[in-house]
Each structure stands twice: as structure tokens, then as C-alpha cells.
Write a protein that binds this DNA or RNA. Structure first.
Lengths: 185, 185
DNA sequence: TTATAATGTCACAAATATGTGACATTAATT
DNA sequence: AATTAATGTCACATATTTGTGACATTATAA
């Protein structure tokens, strides 16, 4: 199926570019189990592939994050779901996060991506703030650190070897427990 | 000074290759504020540069880790110092960690690097084990997860924007607090 | 100031990566 | 079985990266 191949290439590219932004397309093709020729049938050039990766990251990861925010009125539930969404998005989350941090990226309020990024982190901050008011999160910890820890836990959970016999659900629970305990008073 | 330039190139390369393994050498040179020609005066080719980076990572980061292990008999102090050492090593820690995880790396008991890697993680496991016996760390959390969290916190601490007005010491304390609280019973 | 060491500039060949056309092979559909 | 869609194989031109020689410039030490 054509769509299957195309999205497999995209997933592969996100995975590869995430740790090796300048990797040759051969590596992406191999990782997707297709030929370089096939890759070029779906994507005009490297630039188009990267752009599509960014868009794909947008529509799936951003959507999941926004869904997590809207999943509940309860900040603790929202926070948990944002973490789980990040883990589910896998490498896309790091990609997303890096994109807006990458040197050369000029953060603009007109750019749709940046608006959504701001929306997500505005909400994240509000959620943390409310939990700090409720004394569920340590008031002395800065929002920057919490955001940072959030990213770090998602990063390592995603990159965790599947070798370990823990099933996916357990890993997610571990991630959430470590995260919330790590920032509790 | 010649040594200054050489080590600046190495630090630059570790930094660049860590997030973009196939980055052109021009990028490394720019980052080190030298010409590509100068870079090639110190390193025969790309391969030599990568090898030297690995060795540099070994001698500094590995040494720091081993020093942390030997810094005390008290497992809690050892664990804290290992985390701080990882943060101090900066990108080198991720490099070190990734090296032994990278696809294609065959872990060998004859390889000096692997022996040290094993030594460090053997000790890490023992430290965790003792802290679990003392009920300082939750007994139900697996060593794999703890190791993973350790890496994740180091990763994000290193990559944290210096923009935030937290000074370095605060960040390290935050990292340690979040880590130990995250895995306590 | 002069000699020397370190780095920069520029040009260029070799290696690697990129993108595409022509045609073969395989898989799915009718 | 015949047709069609998707992918693979191979060759090739172009672009980019890599490594190096020759010489200029700048910094450092005698």
C-alpha cells in the first residue's frame, strides 16, 4: 500500500534525523526498508522530506498535546496526560521541542507552529502553577526546571531499550511516578 | 597556543557530533572558530577526529564517573556524585552512553572501553541495590528504569537553556533532588 | 626587529551524497 | 492470465563534502 510506505519513510526519517540531522538519505531508506529510489519517488528532495517530517510532527504530536490539555479540568490529570502523550509521540516530541530551540529558528508570533508551541507551553505553565497553589508541586521549583525534567523523562523513556522485559504500560507508569515525585514538595 | 586550539576542536566536535553525527566538518570548524584547513592540520581525517573524541570522552568523563564511585563509601553520596559528574561532563556523557548502545557496537569484554563501561554500571547497580536495602530507594523500581532516569536527567540538564537565570549550582541541586525524589519510596 | 609557529586563504582532486531516467521485477487487482 | 501499481536495480550527471598543497597573513618568542 502506497500510504503505508510513505508514512513508514516519514517515521523513519523523524527517527533518524532526530539523532543525526545530516544523516545520508540512504540511512533513512534503509531504516524504512525501502530503496533510496523509492524514497525519492515520494519526496522530491531532502528538503521536502524534512518539511514533511516537521508537518507530521505537528499534526500528530501537537494534536496529542493539545488533546491532553483538553482531556480534563483537573491539572494533575492534564499533566499526566501531557507526559504520556509525549511518550506516545516518541521521537516526534524531541523533534518538536528541538525545532523551536534550534539555533537559527526565529520564534515568530505569526508562524502557526510557534503559536501552537506557545499555546502548549502557556497551558503547561498554568497547569504547573495551579498544582503549586494546591501544594501538589513544590512551590520553590521553577517552571523552567519542571519543563526541562518533563523533556528529559520523555527523552529517556522513548530511548529506553525495549530489551528490558518491562511492558510499555509499566514504563509509562514509571515515567509518570518519577516525574511527579521528582517535583512534589 | 596549539593545545588550546586542538582541545577546542575536540570539544566542538563532541558537541556537534552528539546531536548531529554526520554533520560536515565545516560545522565543527565553525563551532570551534577555526578554518576547516586548521582542523585538518590537527586531525588526519574525520575518522581520526571521531576516535579522538571518543578517547577524550573516555579519559575525562569515565575518569569523573570512576572518581564519583570512589568518592565515598556512602551509596547516597556516590549516587549523587555520579549524577553531578555526568552533568559536569556535559555532552560527553551522552556520547559515552550512546557509544555503547549504538547499533553496530559489539560489546566486548576485551575492549578496554567496554570493561570500564561495565565497571561503572556494575557499581551503579550495586549502589542502587544497597539504597534499596536501606529503603532509601523504592524496591519496586527496576535498575533499568533508574539508569534510564539518570541518563534522562543528565541529558536534559546539559541541554537546558542557559537563558534561565538559574545558576549552575542551583540546576545541579534541582537535578539531584528531582532524581532522588523520583525514585524514593 | 627578525625568525618562527600557528592560522588563514584559495585552488583543486577525490570521495561521497543527491536526484533522476530507463528498464526489470514483484505484488496486487481484474 | 493479463493488466496495473509499486518497488527494485543500475547507470549517470550534479552537488556537496573531504583532504591536501602552495602560499599569505598574523601572532609569538628570541
Amino acid at each position: 500500500m502506497i500510504l503505508e510506505t510513505k508514512s513508514r519513510i516519514i517515521e523513519s526519517a523523524i527517527e533518524v534525523f532526530n539523532s543525526d540531522y545530516s544523516a545520508p538519505l540512504q540511512k533513512v531508506a534503509d531504516n524504512a526498508a525501502v530503496t533510496r529510489r523509492t524514497l525519492h519517488r515520494y519526496f522530491k528532495d531532502r528538503n521536502e522530506l524534512v518539511t514533511v517530517c516537521e508537518r507530521e510532527m505537528e499534526v500528530s504530536c501537537k494534536k496529542a498535546m493539545i488533546a491532553a490539555i483538553n482531556s480534563s479540568k483537573e491539572p494533575l490529570v492534564q499533566l499526566k496526560n501531557m507526559l504520556l502523550a509525549g511518550i506516545d509521540c516518541g521521537a516526534k516530541y524531541s523533534f518538536f521541542y528541538k525545532l523551536h530551540q534550534r539555533a537559527g529558528h526565529t520564534h515568530s508570533e505569526k508562524n502557526k507552529n510557534c503559536v501552537d508551541y506557545d499555546y502548549i507551553y502557556h497551558n503547561f505553565r498554568q497547569i504547573i502553577n495551579r498544582l503549586q497553589q494546591q501544594d501538589i508541586i513544590d512551590k520553590s521549583i521553577t517552571i523552567e526546571w519542571i519543563q526541562n525534567l518533563h523533556t528529559g523523562i520523555i527523552y529517556s523513556t522513548v530511548n529506553m531499550n525495549i530489551t528490558n522485559m518491562l511492558n510499555e504500560k509499566n514504563i509509562k507508569e514509571l515515567a509518570w511516578n518519577s516525574f511527579i515525585k521528582g517535583i512534589s514538595p
